[in-house]
C-alpha cells in the first residue's frame, strides 16, 4: 500500500464494495423472497402448467392474448378500477377530515385519536366478518335499519349493483385508521410558528388550511395516496370473506381472480400472466403519480 502508482481498480471501487457489503443482507433476503418469485412468475406466465403447477407447455404470449380478449378479465380490470376510485379518494378525504379534527388541542383529544385510529388494530379478516354480519340480508344491521325507516331492503352483497359498493364501504372503514395516523403525524410536524404568524396577519381558518396546512402536509399526503392506491389494487382479504368475487363476478378484483386461477383452478400459467399484468398496471400508475403528483409536493 505504499506505491506511487495510480490507485488500482480494487482501490477505486472501495466505496462501491463497502456499499455492497451493507446492502448484502437485504439483497440476499430480497432475492429469495422477492426477485426469485418475481422472475419465476414471469417465466410461468409463458407456459401452461400441469396439475403439479410445473411448467408443461410453452405457449409464448398466448396467456396474455387470451386475457386481453377474455371478458372475465376485462371485467376484473373494470371492477378493480372502480374499486380504486371508490375507496382511495373518499378514504383519504375522510382520514384527512378526522386528522384535522383530532389535531385540535382539546381536553381528552387523546381518546378521539385512539378511536379514529383504532381500525388499524383490527385485522382485515376480523373486520370483514363483522361487516359480513352487518350486511347479512336476513338479520344484518343495515337491513334492520332500513326496515325501521320503511325503506326497501337492499341485497348488499348479493346484488351486483351494490356488492362492489358494499365492499368499498367496508374497505374505506378498514383503511381509515392507517391513513388517519399517518396524516395526524404529518399535521403534528407542521411548525406552530407558521400558524402563529399567520394568525397575527389575520388569516382565517380555511385560508390557513389552504395556504399552510395542505402545502406543509403535501409530502405526507403524497405518501399516503401512493400507499393507498397500491393497497387498493392489492385488496384481497375482504373480497375473499365478503363476496368470493361474486355476484356475477362484480367484485372479482384482479388479485382475487389471480388467487382463484392459481389455487382453485390450478392454472399457474394464466394466473402468472394476470399477476404480471397487475404488476405492470401498478407500476404505470405509480410512475404516473410520481411524474404528475410530485410536482405539487412541497418539501421543506
Amino acid at each position: 500500500m505504499t506505491s506511487l502508482e495510480k490507485p488500482g481498480i480494487w482501490k477505486k471501487t472501495a466505496n462501491g464494495r463497502t456499499a455492497l457489503l451493507y446492502l448484502l443482507p437485504s439483497i440476499l433476503l430480497f432475492s429469495v423472497f422477492v426477485f426469485y418469485p418475481m422472475f419465476r412468475t414471469i417465466y410461468l406466465s409463458f407456459f401452461l402448467t400441469d396439475q403439479n403447477g410445473d411448467a408443461a407447455i410453452w405457449v409464448g404470449f398466448e396467456n396474455y392474448s387470451y386475457l386481453l380478449e377474455s371478458t372475465a378479465f376485462i371485467n376484473s380490470m373494470k371492477a378493480t378500477g372502480l374499486f380504486v376510485l371508490y375507496t382511495v379518494p373518499i378514504g383519504i378525504v375522510l382520514a384527512l377530515f378526522f386528522a384535522l379534527l383530532a389535531n385540535e388541542k382539546l381536553k381528552g383529544i387523546g381518546f378521539f385519536r385512539t378511536v379514529y385510529s383504532s381500525t388499524m388494530g383490527i385485522s382485515v379478516a376480523a373486520s370483514s366478518v363483522i361487516w359480513l354480519f352487518m350486511f347479512n340480508p336476513s338479520m344484518g344491521m343495515f337491513n334492520r335499519l332500513l326496515s325501521l325507516l320503511n325503506l326497501p331492503q337492499i341485497q348488499w352483497l348479493l346484488d351486483p349493483q351494490w356488492a362492489l359498493l358494499s365492499v368499498s364501504i367496508s374497505t374505506i372503514w378498514m383503511n381509515i385508521g392507517f391513513s388517519f395516523l399517518i396524516l395526524l403525524g404529518g399535521l403534528q410536524n407542521i411548525d406552530e410558528h407558521l400558524y402563529e404568524s399567520s394568525r397575527i396577519d389575520g388569516a382565517g381558518y380555511f385560508y390557513r388550511l389552504r395556504r399552510i396546512t395542505l402545502p406543509m402536509l403535501s409530502p405526507t399526503l403524497f405518501f399516503i395516496i401512493t400507499i393507498s392506491l397500491i393497497n387498493a389494487f392489492q385488496s384481497f382479504g375482504q373480497i375473499d370473506i365478503l363476496t368470493q368475487g361474486g355476484p356475477s363476478a362484480s367484485t372479482n378484483l384482479i388479485v382475487y381472480s389471480i388467487y382463484r386461477e392459481a389455487f382453485i383452478n390450478y392454472q399457474f400459467g394464466t394466473a402468472s400472466a394476470q399477476a404480471v399484468t397487475l404488476f405492470i398496471i401498478i407500476l404505470v400508475v405509480t410512475i404516473l403519480q410520481f411524474k404528475l403528483g410530485e410536482r405539487r409536493v412541497h418539501y421543506q
Binding site: N136, P137, S138, M139, Q155, L157, L158, Q244, G246, P247
Partner: peptide, 18 residues
C-alpha cells in the same frame, strides 16, 4: 329468494321464515 353463496345465510333465511 336469492340468499347468495353462503350456506349459513340460506339456513338463517329458512330458520327466520324468509
Amino acid at each position: 329468494g336469492n340468499f347468495g353463496t353462503n350456506w349459513d345465510d340460506i339456513r338463517a333465511a329458512f330458520a327466520s321464515g324468509k
